[in-house]
Computed example of a mutant assay.
Amino acid sequence: MRILIINSKALAATISLFFLGFLSMTAQTYTLDNSNSEVTIFGTSNIHDWEIVVEEQKGSLTLKQNSPVTLTAMKISIPVKGLKSGKSGMDKNTYKAMNADDYAEVTFTLTSPATLSEAGSGIYKVKATGNLTISGVTKATDLVFTLKKTASGVILSGEKTLDMTTFDIEPPSALMGTIKTGKEVTLKFNTTLQ
């Protein structure tokens, strides 16, 4: 009888390990690699077009690997003071317009799972629905991008055009209002997660 109890415990442990191993194989979490990621924000003004580089970002995403491949979680954060134009005056106006002292980060958080549509070997089209928070204002937003699987992780590529006034941001101006920026900006990203 004792042998039967030992075997039952061994069987239960084996089943538990198999189940946990199966779950870890079917879902994988990736962490953003800032050093291999690029995000640029493009905008316009009444004088000339401009751009700002995102020097810092962080985040993660989780993919359920079995068919269909599904994005089950994602959060990306960008510190506002990590936005750099190469011109200190423009950066200062940007931080002021975005209330950077009170709202230090821009975040996108997935709110429902997204099924990936295969577009080639290891390449998928994604439409992610989530909450985008800028300057303390949160709006439901769709983010469309391409996800490419690599040997060590995934790369997300895409772009999103936003109306700053939707987030209660008054487009920055300079030189006592003689230079005015347009209300729309386009964010282009090539983000690596490993």
Rank of each mutant, 00 (worst) to 15 (best):
K96T: 15
L71T: 12
P172G: 13
T166M: 05
T138R: 00
N99S: 11
L132V: 09
K58T: 15
Q57D: 11
A10H: 01
V106H: 02
T141E: 05
V185H: 01
S24N: 06
G86V: 07
M176Y: 10
S60K: 01
I52W: 05
V80A: 08
T111F: 06
K58E: 15
S16V: 15
T186Q: 02
T129P: 00
T70E: 03
Y30F: 15
I155C: 03
G59L: 11
V144I: 13
T26F: 08
E56P: 02
V53H: 14
E51F: 13
F167E: 00
T72G: 11
K87W: 08
T44G: 13
P113F: 07
G122V: 07
K75S: 14
T70A: 07
S85M: 06
K81H: 12
G43T: 10
T186C: 02
D142S: 12
A151S: 12
N7D: 07
L187H: 04
T62D: 08
I169H: 00
V54E: 03
G82P: 05
M164C: 01
D102G: 15
A151Y: 02
N190P: 08
S157D: 10
M90C: 02
K139M: 01
D49Q: 14
T111V: 14
E105Q: 09
P172K: 08
A13M: 11
D33R: 01
P172H: 10
G158L: 10
M98S: 14
V54W: 04
K75W: 05
A119G: 05
T14Y: 04
N93V: 08
S77K: 07
L61N: 06
Q65M: 14
F19D: 01
K87N: 15
P79H: 09
T186S: 06
T70P: 04
G59F: 11
L71C: 12
S60A: 10
S88N: 09
D163C: 05
D101T: 11
G130V: 01
Y95K: 05
T181W: 08
K149Q: 12
S77L: 08
L20H: 07
A100Y: 10
I134L: 02
S35D: 11
K160Y: 01
A104G: 08
E38C: 06
I123H: 07
L71F: 10
V185K: 01
D168R: 13
D91P: 02
Q57A: 15
L20I: 15
S24D: 03
N93A: 14
S16K: 04
S45I: 03
M164A: 02
I179R: 09
T115Q: 06
T186D: 03
I5F: 02
S37T: 07
S60G: 11
L20K: 06
F189S: 13
T138M: 00
T129I: 04
S77F: 05
K9G: 15
S112K: 14
T26R: 13
Q194F: 10
L11F: 14
G122I: 06
A12W: 03
F108R: 03
A10M: 11
S85V: 10
T109A: 13
G122F: 10
L63E: 05
N93Y: 03
T115R: 00
A13N: 06
Y30S: 07
E55H: 10
Q28N: 10
